[in-house]
Design a protein around this nucleic acid. Structure first.
Lengths: 190, 190
DNA sequence: TGATATTCTTGATTTTTGTCAAGACCAAAG
DNA sequence: CTTTGGTCTTGACAAAAATCAAGAATATCA
């Protein structure tokens, strides 16, 4: 079983081996270079990718500044979900932070899965529900934690990210300025 | 078409009238009195309800204080999604803020829908995806807006809530203290 | 109605976080 | 190696928000 198949199975729990193979065969290996855009806001996001290697940053341009919504890492999927699912303009920009390898499926092929695998929509539902729960937790962290607590929590669970991406992006996705981030960091090292 | 059916249609887009009727017939009208719990954290949430009238508050107990995650209003569904979908212990408490009328379906009946309505899992997926997008926006508001901006935005879209529920709950779900909330409020009235 | 909760407001103060500006550090490119 | 551009850190200060405490307003209920 390929790495992609293992991940699909872990997220979606597809059972029959031939179904799994059918699904994974629709994903094509593509590469994206550091700095290139996987998606630009206001365009349609017509693809879903699994990150085989690399890092992608999801962000929005506002009047004053860029707001990083999330950084996607190896072993996770990346797309603008509402654009992909509802076929409407994307709200996020998605850009490669380093050269990355992606297994990519386009919307047309993606729709085929629903026809070929009877249980697919159900599995999809479960997957999206778990994404929903993750966001609930993230909201909770903003309602109940200080910047420092959010930093510590994220650091404990994503140590490896801290020496791979510009820290200002992590600061932004945790909802603080780079300066505050830097000061918390210093405090933790003492 | 009943009000419940109209809402189901608007959220899930079920097309065939008999399917719609089949689904809605599985929801039973129940009532819950002010202060009563729809759900207690750590129990299983084995039901999904549509709010015909009333208000329910979703919250968590932390060491220091209660954190209100959300207030559900007329015309919306209420449940602990991850508990309902994955049949695991609930993370949230859900309590009626005023006497409320709910159309409630239990998990056993809910599962029947999937068998009776072929497209159901697909529609469910779309519904949950739209919930996901709503949470994305909410996270964005915490990454990019001040307490005052979050207040204004929420106020503009939920004016009616402000004279129906204790304001401290709204303050909490917007991620600020009651005092800060009160001061912003005063400032806006001047 | 009057008594009792609870909720809301307000002021004084502290803490946290943001802003602005300067300089240090570091990696990539000539 | 040196330059350059981006990133990170630091300091001084300002603004935002939290905390604590008291009192006012409001709802609840006997």
């Amino acid at each position: 079983m390929t790495e992609l198949e293992q991940y699909i199975q872990s997220y979606f729990g597809v059972v029959l081996p031939d179904e799994l193979q059918t699904i994974s065969s629709l994903f094509k290996l593509t590469t994206i270079k550091k700095g290139e855009y996987f998606l630009k806001a206001s365009r349609r996001c017509d693809k879903l990718s699994f990150i085989q290697s690399g890092l992608l940053r999801i962000f929005v341009d506002t009047d004053n500044r860029e707001v990083t919504q999330w950084i996607s890492t190896k072993g996770y999927f990346v797309t603008d979900l509402s654009s992909f699912v509802f076929e409407k303009p994307a709200r996020w920009n998605i850009q490669a932070l380093i050269d990355s390898e992606l297994y990519t499926i386009n919307i047309a092929d993606y729709k085929k899965i629903g026809n070929m695998v009877p249980k697919w929509h159900q599995l999809e539902k479960l997957f999206i529900a778990s994404c929903f729960a993750t966001l609930e937790d993230r909201i909770f962290s903003h309602l109940s934690m200080t910047a420092e607590e959010r930093y510590s929590f994220f650091f404990e669970n994503n140590k490896e990210l801290f020496n791979q991406v510009p820290l200002q992006y992590i600061a932004s996705m945790l909802g603080m300025t780079p300066e505050t981030f830097s000061r918390i960091r210093k405090k933790k090292l003492l």
